[in-house]
Amino acid sequence: MLERKLRKDRTEVAFVLPAGTPPGPVGVVGDFNGWQPGTHTLRPRKDGKRAVTIALASDSTRSFRYLAAGDYWFNDDSAGDHEGPNSRLHT
């Protein structure tokens, strides 16, 4: 699930997943971090979900996927758009 907060000069996007689904560590990997695994790892929240928040330029389109343990790549269905194998995010 994606949560967006509009700021004056950027959009803060929280990438959110349920706790333990999928099991193990999960990171978000995309064109905003050079597709570098380990850069944006989801952390536990008080509500039990896992999330990481990234500030992105407003009015942009970004491609991303999640990477879980065991080299398991998957998309975010809440993104609403895809480009090839990647989820697309419009800020």
Results as ranks from 00 to 15, higher is better:
Asp47Arg: 06
Asp31Trp: 02
Gly24Met: 08
Ser78Gly: 13
Asn75Val: 05
Arg62Asn: 11
Asp9Tyr: 08
Asn33Ile: 07
Thr61Ser: 14
Gln36His: 14
Glu12Leu: 13
Arg45Glu: 09
Pro23Lys: 13
Trp35Arg: 01
Lys46Pro: 10
Thr41His: 06
Pro23Glu: 06
Ala55Thr: 04
Arg88Gly: 04
Arg4Met: 09
Gly80Cys: 07
Gly20Phe: 03
Pro85Gln: 14
Gly80Met: 12
Arg10Trp: 08
Lys46Leu: 13
Arg88Phe: 08
Pro22Phe: 10
Trp73Leu: 05
Asp31Thr: 01
Pro37His: 13
Arg62Leu: 03
Pro85Thr: 15
Leu6Pro: 02
Ala55Val: 03
Arg62Gly: 00
His82Pro: 03
Trp73Met: 05
Thr39Arg: 15
Ala14Phe: 04
Thr21Phe: 10
Leu42Trp: 02
Val13Pro: 06
Ala69Gln: 14
Ser78Lys: 03
Val28His: 03
Arg7Gly: 15
Ala55Ser: 15
Val16Cys: 04
Val29His: 01
Val29Ile: 13
Ala79Lys: 00
Glu12His: 05
Thr39Gln: 12
Ser63Asp: 13
Gly38Arg: 08
Asp76Ser: 09
Thr61Asn: 02
Tyr66Phe: 13
Pro37Val: 05
Gly20Ser: 03
Ser58Lys: 11
Val16Glu: 09
His40Cys: 06
Pro44Gly: 05
Asp81Ile: 12
Arg45Trp: 03
Ser63His: 11
Ser58Tyr: 02
Pro37Phe: 09
Leu6Trp: 09
Thr11Glu: 12
Val52Ala: 01
Phe15Gln: 12
Arg50Gly: 08
Lys8Trp: 07
Gly20Thr: 05
Ser63Phe: 02
Ala79Thr: 01
Lys46Thr: 14
Val29Leu: 06
Val26Ala: 01
Asp59Arg: 14
Arg88Cys: 02
Thr61Tyr: 00
Gly20Tyr: 00
Ser78Leu: 10
Gly70Lys: 06
Phe32Arg: 12
Ala68Phe: 08
Asp59Asn: 15
Pro37Gln: 02
Val26Trp: 00
Arg43Val: 06
Asp59Val: 05
Trp35Ser: 07
Thr11Asn: 11
Ala14Trp: 04
Val29Glu: 02
Gly70Asp: 09
Thr39Pro: 02
